[in-house]
């Protein structure tokens, strides 16, 4: 059995050459090998969205992807969203609107929101609901999240 395989990819803009253990999920790889711990584990079955990252620009559940599938891909995690210390406008809007409480779902939530704004720069409530229905927030910050996303879209 091949224990490890080489994976070449970019993460938050930087090229990386690594080895990934076969059987390891992308989530574990990001957290344990890349030491980017913003992506969280909440269910391991793609239901909660805490592990969402952007793969080739699209939000995906990293708990349902294998690390070896990362080969040749472009990965963006929450750590890659702010540039040169400047927060992304979605991050700023989340702060302004208090769109999180415990913060555990927030990285996934913000990345889902970011991807939505790429697709639809001026999303409606319905667009937001559709795009984020796979991001569970048990603290119930949903109304504030909708407000934050709409505020980020108005620019």
């Amino acid at each position: 059995m091949t224990e490890k395989m080489p994976v070449n990819f970019t993460v938050n803009g930087d090229k990386e050459e690594r080895e990934a253990v076969v059987g390891q999920t992308l989530l574990k790889f990001i957290r344990d090998e890349l030491h980017l711990t913003g992506a969280k584990e909440g269910c391991e079955i793609g239901e909660c969205g805490a592990c969402i990252v952007l793969l080739d620009g699209k939000p995906v559940n990293s708990c349902l992807i294998l690390a070896v599938e990362l080969d040749g891909k472009d990965l963006v995690t929450i750590e890659g969203l702010s540039k040169n210390g400047e927060l992304d406008r979605v991050q700023k809007a989340f702060i302004k609107h208090a769109a999180f409480q415990c913060g555990y779902c927030t990285p996934g939530m913000i990345l889902s929101a970011r991807a939505l704004l790429e697709r639809k720069p001026n999303p409606t409530d319905e667009d937001i609901n559709q795009a984020l229905s796979g991001n569970l927030c048990r603290c119930g910050a949903y109304q504030e999240i909708r407000e934050a996303i709409k505020a980020s879209s108005e620019k």
Binding site: G46, G49, P59, V60, N61, L64, I65, Q130, A131, G134
Partner: peptide, 9 residues
Amino acid sequence: VGSYSIRNR
């Protein structure tokens, strides 16, 4: 089927 992020895969 599932959520938006699931349907991306």
